[in-house]
């Protein structure tokens, strides 16, 4: 098992070595997955291996309480996740700036990390990223309660996956919600101010589905980030990664082909 302890938590980390030389990118690419039932496999199955295969040093990790990482009872604020990422990079010996790829809630972590440590981020690729605007924590908590209810009260979950997987999936979500400070930490999320976003001058690529429930976040990023390129994919919703990895992969590989800068200006 690829496990490291960082920030006092045991993390499941995958590092995929670049297969091609010369390398596509000099700097590592770090993938940050979404919330709740998500884990690093959503990137592992879709973008991570192709990016490594194209010639990048790829790092994936399960966030605390997710996937195969430890589920501590507390520490689920975005600031904790920023601390986790910082500590994981430190434990891996990564000192150079990294390219961040954040999906959904992972995008919020990427944004917060980039604003806290701009010198450590050479570019960001945000897929359906949540931007913690005022009221966002309450909305997220409500959405999660809805999913939890659907999993527990109906056949929704059972139709989605097989019995063994269903039991595991439901347990993961319920343990996170009921046995940790996850929900209260979510409600305590500190909003990102537009002024903070305006300060981040490195290139950002934002990709959203046309019918995404967070499409307003896409337009916010496009309006306030100094170097943002927004792509809106027609006929897709929030789940672009699951629904059309092929289109996303082409965008991601194209984006990284243009990101050759090593340092941070």
């Amino acid at each position: 098992m690829a496990e490291i302890t960082a920030n006092g938590v045991r993390f499941h980390v995958q590092r995929l070595a670049p297969r091609r030389r010369p390398h596509l990118l000099e700097n590592p690419v770090v993938f940050i997955h979404g919330l709740g039932l998500d884990n690093l496999s959503s990137f592992y199955y879709t973008l991570a291996n192709p990016v490594a295969h194209a010639g990048a040093d790829v790092i994936l990790y399960d966030q605390r309480g997710h996937g195969l990482s430890e589920r501590p009872p507390a520490g689920y604020r975005i600031s904790d996740s920023v601390g986790d990422l910082s500590a994981i990079l430190g434990a891996l010996g990564v000192k150079e700036p990294v390219h961040l790829v954040g999906h959904s809630y992972g995008g919020a972590i990427a944004l917060r990390f980039a604003l806290a440590y701009p010198e450590l981020v050479t570019s960001m690729l945000l897929i359906e990223a949540h931007v913690p605007i005022p009221g966002w924590g309450e909305q997220m908590a409500a959405n999660i309660r809805k999913v939890e209810q659907d999993l527990g009260d109906s056949d929704w979950g059972r139709e989605m996956v097989s019995i063994r997987k269903y039991a595991r999936l439901a347990a993961v979500g319920q343990n996170l919600i009921n046995r940790t400070t996850f929900m209260t930490d979510l409600l305590a999320a500190e909003p990102i101010a537009e002024q903070e976003l305006r300060m981040f001058t490195r290139p950002v690529r934002a990709v959203y589905g046309e019918n995404s429930d967070v499409i307003s976040h896409a337009h916010l990023l496009d309006a306030v980030l100094p170097e943002c390129t927004l792509t809106v994919l027609p006929d897709l919703d929030h789940f672009v990664l699951a629904r059309d990895a092929r289109v996303l992969r082409a965008i991601v590989l194209d984006w990284f082909a243009t990101q050759t800068a090593v340092g941070v200006s």
Binding site: Q14, N39, Y44, Y45
Partner: peptide, 13 residues
Amino acid sequence: LELESIEFVRLAT
């Protein structure tokens, strides 16, 4: 086997 996605990653490791 009803292998979960994350379990397949574990197998690959």
